[in-house]
Amino acid sequence: MSKMNLLQAINNALDIAMSTDPSALCFGEDVGHFGGVFRATSHLQEKFGKARCFNTPLTEQGILGFANGIAAQGMTAIAEIQFADYIFPAFDQIVNESAKFRYRSGNQFDVGGLTIRTPYGGGINGAHYHSQSPEAYFTHTPGLKIVVPRNPEQAKGLLLASIRDPNPVIFFEPKKLYRAAVGEVPDEDYQLPLGQAEVVREGSDITLVAWGAQMEAIEQAAQLAEKDGISCELIDLRSLLPWDRDTLAHSVRKTGRLIINHEAPKTSGFGAEIAASIQEACFLHLESPILRVTGLDTPFPLALEKEYMPDHLKTYEAILASMNY
């Protein structure tokens, strides 16, 4: 075991992936000579050479067009989009090419070797062009997988699993957590299952579900609720496509209550899909309405970032509202 922050865990996973797979290429804006804007790819070019870790032109559509091309030829493409806010110029390549390549060819061709890494979310005073959480746009697209880690140990195992999964994966990295804390990370090569949620803490009164950086918010809210004698079950979804309905439904049947926390705006956020699915599966077990604690339906603000964030206090208020319904 080694102590790593989230960035170091991602770098370690990339190092292992490229060491164990000679066809793996790592590329994106500024990823080569100095390791990208956050230094996630530091020293990879030194170790693997400029042919396997290299800078691209500043064109997200081009990055993903190139990635689709080499993945279609059987290579492992690890593409970085510098900020998730910049992924939209590549939207057509991702949803109309990456996601549909296998289906439209009748499984004769695929781009399953493609992984798209991108930092997302607020918490760094990045304002509206460096703070968005666009995961819900992509969960509407069959053919993709969407993965979000919550800590360094999870990041390494989930990223290695994403790179080796036979489907195109978008790996959203919570940039707020990059250097926020260190954790124990196994040194060896390991993978964590995609599409499987984790029950981080068991409880009996109410279920709280989140992913990525928002896991910290629900953990802090659960600590406040515990002082009131409320037992919270905490679930990290980890994968949003596919997502683990069974684990969440099992929890809600036990507790009878559910709060969903995500940083993206409420309208058409992924929490809406969770709420609809869980009420279908658990309607007769619910003791109160499913609640969503989310970002606001506004562009991401700069001066009012703290007011925008769905923090532990807003989550705690929702816990009380649900329990007192």
Rank of each mutant, 00 (worst) to 15 (best):
E287M: 07
M1S: 13
V31Y: 11
W211S: 08
T207K: 00
Q132V: 11
E184I: 14
L304A: 15
I260K: 00
I94P: 04
S322L: 06
F270T: 05
Q73Y: 07
K227N: 15
F83P: 12
Q82G: 07
A77E: 04
P299E: 03
A264N: 03
D244C: 03
V169Y: 01
I218E: 06
T298K: 11
L144A: 05
R257E: 02
P119D: 10
F172E: 14
Q45F: 13
P134T: 09
P299F: 02
D244G: 04
N125F: 11
L286R: 01
A221K: 00
G65P: 03
Q279W: 01
D15L: 15
I94D: 03
D297A: 06
T76L: 13
G271C: 12
T139E: 07
D92Q: 11
P134V: 01
F270C: 00
F88R: 06
F83M: 08
C282V: 06
Y120K: 14
R201T: 12
L177Y: 07
G256M: 02
N107G: 01
V209K: 01
Q93M: 15
C26P: 03
E135D: 14
L320E: 15
P152V: 08
Y308L: 10
Y137Q: 05
L6S: 01
Q82E: 12
V147L: 12
I63H: 01
D15K: 15
E263G: 11
A222M: 15
N324K: 13
S251G: 07
S98E: 06
L296A: 05
L192Q: 12
E198I: 04
T56C: 10
R102T: 02
N324A: 10
D110G: 15
A77L: 05
L286K: 05
R39Q: 04
L241W: 08
F91T: 09
V169G: 05
R39Y: 11
K314D: 01
A90I: 03
V148C: 02
I274C: 00
F48T: 05
V182R: 10
G256T: 01
M215H: 05
Q8C: 08
Q93R: 09
E202W: 04
L313T: 14
Q93N: 10
S277E: 13
Y137A: 08
Q220F: 07
Q108M: 13
R104T: 13
S204Q: 14
N125M: 11
G295I: 06
I218R: 02
P89E: 01
N167D: 08
P149N: 12
F66H: 06
Q108D: 09
P57K: 02
F300M: 02
E202Y: 11
G212L: 08
L302K: 10
F83V: 14
E80H: 05
G69F: 04
D246Y: 12
N261Y: 00
L240Y: 08
A9D: 08
C282Q: 00
V31W: 04
P152R: 01
S251M: 08
E188Y: 14
L160N: 01
S268E: 10
S98R: 02
T59L: 08
T118W: 06
I116A: 04
L158I: 08
T115Y: 04
H140M: 10
V95Y: 10
G126Y: 03
T56Y: 06
W211A: 02
E60C: 15
I163Y: 09
A24D: 11
N12L: 12
N5C: 12
G28Y: 03
G123C: 03
K306Q: 13
